[in-house]
């Protein structure tokens, strides 16, 4: 201990009693400490009494005998060891396995979280929706526009739609759009538009209702309300403005846009779980069954392929449509899992 010389002239017994250095000297008396305090008591002879008294207090307090209990130490340990044994056997039965389960659950959760994060990050903030065969799904977009997806279809869009950019969305399959009008009247700007990317086309609208069907290289666009602009860039570029009631089909293999025989109202009948047969050949109906419901169909009566029907049939399920065509064309349908072999009865 480093001794700091202090002025002890004002020290009383209690002051010595409190003094860190003094306590140390009394309790841990080494040669250095003894020499220091002997020198001090020679220096302050009038403090000897106070020093001795403080020393006596400290020693009396410090050297008290350790209490000797009447109870037995070994017996107490045996009791403790008994309790420990009981707790150990319980631990092995319940707590340890539980702890292990908790540990693994936590690890699994961490891994899962990691995977989700990686997926989120790798999709560059894209949000996507997709449907399986035979299922419809309604998606409300951030701007409150509503997209109804037909079976076996998907959309994706950038999560962060900024108000100064056109709203953009990518489509595979078939969907019906009800786009919310966000432009202020007579003050239309580029950023108010809504764009659907399908095949190699860009469809630009404001607030409208339209159906887009993209199957087998053919993209059918049917406009029910508002205005729609079809734009094709690159080779064979064109622009076409659609009016309500227009329905156009674009063949991406030929880069050819043609007006359709079928009307927009018929093309969106699927959203009401119906199939409007006007303008459909049997082959086209079978294509719908393949595209939307996931069947693999072989038609063993090629003469029937171009036959037509009219009227509307319920289309809650593929069975409804199959029932109708079987009755009307008098067909035999042989089903093996998803494979349908259709022949003349």
């Amino acid at each position: 201990m480093e001794y700091q010389h202090r002025d002890y002239t004002q020290y009383t017994a209690t002051a010595f009693f409190e003094d860190e250095q003094f306590i140390h000297h009394v309790l841990k008396w080494d040669d250095e400490a003894i020499a220091y305090w002997q020198q001090l008591s020679a220096l302050y002879p009038d403090k000897r009494n106070a020093m001795e008294e403080a020393r006596a207090w400290i020693l009396l307090l410090n050297k008290q005998p350790v209490y000797k209990p009447a109870t037995d130490k070994l017996q107490l340990w045996e009791k403790i060891a008994g309790d420990i044994a009981v707790s150990n056997s319980r631990e092995q039965r319940y707590y340890r396995p539980l702890k292990l389960v908790a540990k693994w659950t936590a690890a699994a959760a961490a891994v899962l979280l990691f995977i989700v994060m990686i997926r989120e990050l790798s999709s560059h903030g894209e949000k996507s929706y997709s449907t399986t065969f035979g299922k419809h799904e309604q998606v409300v977009l951030p701007d409150e526009s509503v997209v109804t997806l037909n079976g076996n279809s998907s959309i994706y869009y950038s999560r962060s739609w900024k108000s100064d950019k056109p709203r953009e969305i990518w489509l595979n399959g078939e969907a019906y759009f009800e786009v919310k009008h966000v432009a202020i009247k007579n003050r239309w700007q580029q950023s108010d538009s809504f764009q659907v990317h399908v095949s190699d086309l860009a469809l630009t609208v404001l607030g409208t209702k339209f159906n887009v069907r993209n199957r087998r290289n053919i993209t059918e666009i049917s406009l029910l309300e508002g205005r729609l602009r079809i734009e094709k860039n690159g080779p064979g570029a064109f622009v076409k403005i659609l009016k309500p009631g227009d329905a156009f089909a674009y063949d991406s293999s030929k880069q050819l846009l043609q007006e359709m025989e079928r009307k927009p109202q018929a093309n969106k009948a699927w959203t009401a779980n119906e199939l409007d047969l006007d303008g459909y050949t049997l082959q086209e109906i079978l294509d719908v069954l393949e595209d939307n419901y996931g069947y693999n169909i072989t038609l063993e009566a090629p003469a029937l392929a171009q036959k037509r029907l009219s009227g509307t049939v319920p289309a809650n399920s593929a069975e409804d449509i199959l029932f109708v065509i079987r009755k009307v064309f008098n067909l035999k349908i042989n089903q093996k899992a998803d494979h349908l072999i259709i022949s003349q009865n």
Partner: peptide
């Protein structure tokens, strides 16, 4: 406690 050790060597 009014038990005290007999002051030994230190004392």
């Amino acid at each position: 406690l009014d038990e005290w050790s007999e002051p030994g060597g230190e004392m």
